[in-house]
Amino acid sequence: MVNLPRGSAASIDEAALLARLRAGDEQAFEVMVRAFGGRLLAVARRFVRDEADAQDVLQSAYLSAFRALAQFEGSSQLSTWLHRIVVNTALMKLRSRRRKPEDSIDQLLPGFLDDGHHVEQFADWTAPADRLLEQQETRATVRAAIDQLPDRYRVVLLLRDIEERPTQEVAEALQMTPTAVKVRLHRARQALSTLLRKIYAPSVTNP
């Protein structure tokens, strides 16, 4: 067994590791799993939200990586390359899951009167995001809100706003048109905004 210090992914010499992997060094494969696996497992959890599925994703992703190692050109970092493989594998897992019909997002979208005005009177946002992010609990609060979004909206938000993948790439990964990706992202942000307004901009007319 290879012992690695905690948080060792950041300190690893990726070029040297890659050379050892290509030479078929047995220990290098274990280093690759132990050094990057923890963070990658967290990424898989973020997408599939189920520990057993996340572990399946990690295992499948590493298998894909082992097989594709010869084609890895080294133009990106090994950790970045593995991250992308994990996200793509997680998307496949989400597609393959037979899930009960998802909750509608409609109740989280703004309501309008017949004349096109908002039903709700919005309140001022309490503090800018960078100030809120100085507080320890803000990120956890936002993550909990993202987790409340139905999967098909949550995944687009994760891919576009957190993974920062281009619209075209997300469209291809999810087999959607770029326009549909834009619409879904907008609705996901609107829904997230509704959830976060309850905390950071509570309204008097629609608490």
């Binding site: 905690r6 948080g7 060792s8 992914a9 799993v33 132990r34 696996g37 923890g38 963070r39 497992l41 967290a42 990424v43 973020r46 990690l58 946002w125 800018p128 995001a129 960078d130 809120l132 992010l133 803000t138 990120r139 936002v142 993550r143 993202i146 938000l157 706003d161 957190i162 942000r189 997230l192 905004s193 976060l196 950071y200």
Partner: peptide
Amino acid sequence: ETVALGRHAFEDYEAMLPPEV
């Protein structure tokens, strides 16, 4: 503000988790 908060929501997430598999 929501978009800005969302973009940073996971920045410390992996850091808080044990890096071991």
